[in-house]
Simulated scan of single mutants.
Amino acid sequence: MKIKLICILGLFLIFISIYNYIQISQFIVNKLTFHSKKLSKALRVTQISDYHSNDYINSQKLLDKIIHFNPHIIVLTGDIIDSKTKDIHPTLDLVGELININPNIFFVIGNHELGNKNGDKFILNLKEMGVTILDNNSQTIDIEGKKINLCGLSFFATNQDYQETMIGIDEDNFTLLLSHSPNRPIAYSKGIEDLVLTGHTHGGQVRLPLIGAIISPGQGLFPKYDKGVFNINNSILYIDSGLGNSIFPIRLFNRVQISNITIQPIKNS
């Protein structure tokens, strides 16, 4: 009887290990579609968040998925390296491959870049490579003849930082706000943004069916804003659950992912 129990326990641990490896290494592509009256053509955005220098990921497969989607914009919503990442160059190499796909890459700084001793060097290298750093500032770009507002908040942004970032925004343009943590937009948003893209929560990493995330940074136990799409002050908030893990490489009912987002125009009748 004792031997049987040990065998069952051993098989269970093997199953859990295989399951967890799939969760942290075999990413999925979350495909989302939103709609806007401010666009005349579809806008395609690839979001990569909370990569944490995840070397379990098949980077070529990742790049192939993005190439197939053919985004107009690629956004990196923070924690692309981990606070414990010692060698930043593999992650920079991946960003370089993304630039080869599309140079319209925008980045907001996460808490792990701030906590890494090489974080400043990583951000500087991104700038030198041509990545646009949105840190309490905004930029207007032209995508196939249509102007798009891109705004970004720093991880520790205050309400005043938000207000100053949004000053002068032409609300006739489609406005995309990037923030590593959803907590700032939730607290500060005035509805100027059409779409807010964030990460940080990892979807809780460990989720339970019908319940969702058990815990999330900044929100505590059973957070409301853990993963997915929410409406805040007439804006759409999307929280991506991330392509990597922090602290422990553990995921439950919550595979690592990227998001391919399409904003379709609403034609006036």
Rank of each mutant, 00 (worst) to 15 (best):
M1W: 14
G220E: 00
T132Q: 15
Y188C: 01
N260H: 08
L126P: 09
L114N: 12
L176A: 06
H89E: 15
I239C: 05
L11W: 04
N125S: 14
S17M: 08
I81A: 06
K190I: 10
I18E: 11
N234F: 06
I48A: 01
Q47F: 01
I261V: 10
L11T: 13
I6L: 05
I6R: 08
I263N: 01
N58H: 02
G242W: 02
Y162S: 00
H89M: 12
H89F: 11
F34Q: 11
T91F: 14
K4M: 13
L210C: 07
K41T: 13
G145V: 08
T165C: 00
L237F: 01
I143T: 08
I3S: 07
I186D: 04
L114H: 15
I24T: 14
H200Y: 12
Y225H: 01
N173Y: 13
Q160P: 10
I167M: 11
I133A: 02
I211R: 01
I167P: 09
Y188H: 00
V75I: 05
N231F: 15
L32Y: 14
R255I: 09
F34M: 11
S154R: 08
D87R: 01
V206H: 04
D240H: 02
Q219N: 03
V45N: 14
G218P: 04
I57H: 10
N234K: 13
S235F: 07
I48H: 06
N111D: 09
V196P: 04
N254A: 00
I169W: 07
K61S: 15
K146F: 09
K146C: 11
V75S: 05
I105P: 05
F107S: 02
I109D: 04
E128K: 14
D120T: 14
V75R: 01
S241K: 08
V206F: 00
I141W: 00
N102V: 12
F34K: 09
Y238A: 02
G220T: 05
L237H: 02
I261W: 00
K127C: 14
I261K: 10
Q26S: 15
N100A: 07
G78K: 07
L177E: 02
I73P: 07
V131A: 05
S83A: 13
F69P: 10
P182V: 06
Q163P: 05
N245I: 10
D64C: 09
I3R: 12
K227L: 07
I148S: 10
G10S: 06
Q205L: 09
P265Q: 01
V196H: 07
S235C: 08
N70D: 12
I123Y: 12
K65S: 09
R207Q: 10
L197C: 01
K37W: 05
I73S: 04
K61C: 14
